[in-house]
Amino acid sequence: MKVNPHNKSIDELKEVAAQVRRDIVRMVHAVNSGHPGGSLGCTDYFVSLYFKVMNYSTDFKMNGEGEDLFFLSNGHISPVFYSTLARAGFFDPKELATFRKLNSRLQGHPATEEGLPGIRVASGSLGQGLSVAIGAAQAKKLNKDNSLVYVLMGDGELQEGQVWEATMYAGGKKVDNLIATIDRNGQQIDGSTKEVMPLGDLRAKFEAFGWHVMEANGNSFETLLPALDQAKAATGKGKPVMILMDTEMGYGVDFMMGSHKWHGVAPNDEQLEIALQQLAVNEAADY
């Protein structure tokens, strides 16, 4: 049985999160492309999983036997995924400098083709990750492997029909070794989710599909960590677990918060400086 290789305290997690946020803004700035908004909003979630909650080994094996697995369905927030994997020890953080560049393992959206450790499936075309996570969870059951499968989706992503096929399946077939999380930032590309396509009462919807539903503030370790613990405790009881996680797009950089505008726009030189000032941490640890 694997353990979390870092098992950090809340103060340490906050430091890691600031470092990951610095990586994110620097990565997208360097290539003037990529998705900082959702990446910054989900940083505390990623850092919680990889530095505290999930049990895994950084010696990456595709089959992840005996390990908790994580799938990123909303692949556009690859910067936070890559930075977290690097900081957690899957590969050298220096490689973050190759993000979105030619011949890089850090493709615009996560991919397995180049063999980046920590990635188990390609994502980017939205709506597919929950199905893949369900398959991985079913394989764990067949293998009598009682570790867990995690998957993150965007809230706009819920507009994809396949998500609801998978939601019906996981509830109906009692896939209870699965913890899904929605990044409920209320934003997508063309505006707020309310404007683009109202999502309605998500708690009621997932409950109606047979899920155990929880809600959590995704930008506070003080509330997110206990929620993730409760989610773990809720597995194995005949229901898949859903965390409706409220986040703020762009969290940590004041001018990126509160709007959909930073979904997929890189900061310019000046904006980068301001952002890095707000994310003060040990600069020497920058990649």
């Binding site: 697995l69 597919q128 893949v132 394989a139 293998n143 998978a166 399946y169």
Partner: peptide
């Protein structure tokens, strides 16, 4: 055997996930 119901997109995704566990 996994009866997926009339949801072919989900079936392809679940199949992809099953391979990760060696199936």
């Amino acid at each position: 055997f996994f009866q997926i119901g009339i949801a072919e997109a989900n079936m392809m995704g679940i199949a992809a996930g099953l391979t990760i566990g060696g199936k």
